[in-house]
Every structure is written in structure tokens, then in C-alpha cells.
């Protein structure tokens, strides 16, 4: 099937050369029939075979599999909902709060998957299929036509990030920034606000328990920094980009690592 797609694109190149510079309309039609057309077909096919079962044919997150239940450490149950692409809201972004993610952000999530959720990794999927399915996913929400993706934040890890001295500073910031109101004093996800937390779909939102395992946004120290800085759109987790200086955000990252048992 993929070889057919390739052949069609080859024809597109020849035809494209033939009609070069005649009229804009011909270019438009030519590209539509042989360039973008085949990518759309490929995206549709990849989506149908790998994504639709959870995210639904219409991209509304209401696939056959539906809500996915998982059991966390210590017996706590939570519920995982496949992303509703029609809303155009994305959790894991390198762009500022309220902005669309970059293609690299989408690709990272598709490739690596999301730990502690039903989203598997897709490292086996060829690059052209990922690109095609990204375009297909974007077509579910009009937001991709109205807004441009934001710019990725710069991430420059300071040498002291992850050290116990930095974690000690982070512990005070954790208190002052009231992170504990949702995530709890010891980061167990059991703060006093938990019962009120809802996501944009009105479903309960469970604050991360730092002692429970893998981070949804990614395993690296830079991933934690990115989440503190850009927030998790669609959930109550805000951006701290404007509320807290860069150095302090890194101390908070260090303290997070400490709660996760990764700093001595």
C-alpha cells in the first residue's frame, strides 16, 4: 500500500514540473490530486488502523475502547480519557499556556506514548506515516486553521538542577507556590483542593502523585521543567512561567525529583 502512495507522489513531481508556472490554479489542483491528496489518504489509513479505536472515527475521543481504567500504586483508581481532537486542546506542549503545540510536540507524544495512560508508543511507525497522521489529527479541529502553533520555550538546564541543594530550595518554593494545595504536602496528589478539580470536559482531574511512577509529560528533567513552565492545558495545572522565575522553576524540578526518590 505504501509503495502505491510513493508512485503517486512520483507522478505528482513529473506533472508538477510539466505545468510549472502556468497558473496558480493548476498548481493548486495538481498538488491537491497528487501531493496533499495521497498524504491525506495515508493519514486516514494510519488513523483508522492505530488511533480510531480509542480516539474515535470522528476524533472526539469516543472510540470503541472508551474510557480506560488504570490502577495506581497504593490501590488508588483513576480514569484515563482518550484525547478529544475536536477541541484542539493539547496537554503536552513546549508552547505557552493556551497555545497550540508544535509538530515536534505532537510527534513526541505519538512516538513515545503517554505512560500511565492507554496511549502506547509508536516507535515502529515510519516517519511519513506519523507526519500524515498528524495532519489528519489536525483536521478534526477548526482551531488549527484559526491559530498558529506557539513557539517552543527555551530549556537551558543549569548545572545545579537535580542537586540536593537545589531540591532544598525547591521544597520552600513548593510551600510558597502552594503546589501542595493540589499535589499534597509530600507530593502524593492528596492536597485539599483535589475534590474540586475538573478538566475542560468536566471530568475529575487527578493531580500527579510524585511517588507513583512515570510522568505523563516525559521522563527527563527537561520534561518536568517544561510542564511547570507551560502548564497542562485542558486541566487545572497552570503555567508558572509568569508566577515564578526560571531559576526557581528549576529548584522546583529538583524537589520533584526528590519526591520521586531520585535525589539523595
Amino acid at each position: 500500500m505504501r509503495s502505491i502512495a510513493k508512485r503517486e507522489r512520483g507522478r505528482g513531481v513529473c506533472l508538477g514540473l510539466g505545468i510549472a508556472g502556468i497558473t496558480v490554479w493548476t498548481l493548486f489542483a495538481g498538488a491537491d490530486a497528487f501531493g496533499a491528496g495521497s498524504e491525506a489518504d495515508l493519514g486516514k489509513k494510519v488513523y483508522a488502523s492505530r488511533c480510531g479505536i480509542c480516539h474515535g472515527d470522528k476524533g472526539d475521543g469516543k472510540g470503541l475502547v472508551g474510557i480506560i481504567h488504570r490502577v495506581e500504586k497504593r490501590g488508588l483508581t483513576w480514569v484515563s480519557y482518550p484525547r478529544d481532537f475536536t477541541a484542539g486542546i493539547f496537554k503536552f506542549r513546549s508552547t505557552m499556556t493556551g497555545e497550540l503545540p508544535t509538530d515536534a510536540d505532537l510527534e513526541r507524544v505519538i512516538r513515545n506514548g503517554i505512560p500511565r495512560s492507554g496511549m502506547p508508543s509508536h516507535i515502529d511507525v515510519p516517519a511519513n506515516e506519523i507526519k500524515a497522521v498528524m495532519a489528519y489529527i489536525k483536521a478534526f479541529s477548526p482551531r488549527w486553521k484559526q491559530d498558529k502553533p506557539g513557539k517552543s520555550i527555551a530549556i537551558k538546564k543549569p548545572a545545579e538542577a537535580g542537586s540536593s541543594a537545589s531540591a532544598a530550595k525547591g521544597e520552600k518554593i513548593w510551600k510558597d507556590m502552594k503546589c501542595w494545595e493540589c499535589h499534597g504536602e509530600k507530593g502524593l496528589g492528596d492536597g485539599p483542593s483535589v475534590a474540586t478539580l475538573k478538566d475542560d470536559w468536566g471530568d475529575p482531574s487527578v493531580p500527579f502523585d510524585f511517588t507513583s511512577g512515570a510522568l505523563k509529560g516525559g521522563p527527563d528533567i527537561e520534561d518536568i521543567y517544561r510542564t511547570f513552565t507551560t502548564g497542562v492545558d485542558g486541566t487545572p495545572m497552570p503555567s508558572y512561567a509568569d508566577s515564578l522565575g526560571e531559576a526557581d522553576r528549576w529548584h522546583l524540578v529538583s524537589y520533584s525529583l526528590k519526591m520521586m526518590g531520585k535525589v539523595k
Binding site: A87, G88, I89, T97, G98, R143, M177, K178, D200, G231, D233, G234, P236, M237, P238, S239, Y240, D242, S243, L244
Partner: peptide
């Protein structure tokens, strides 16, 4: 529906 900002 669409978050335009979420700040602490």
C-alpha cells in the same frame, strides 16, 4: 472551551 491562559 479553549484555554487561552491558565496562570497561578
Amino acid at each position: 472551551k479553549i484555554t487561552t491562559f491558565n496562570v497561578a
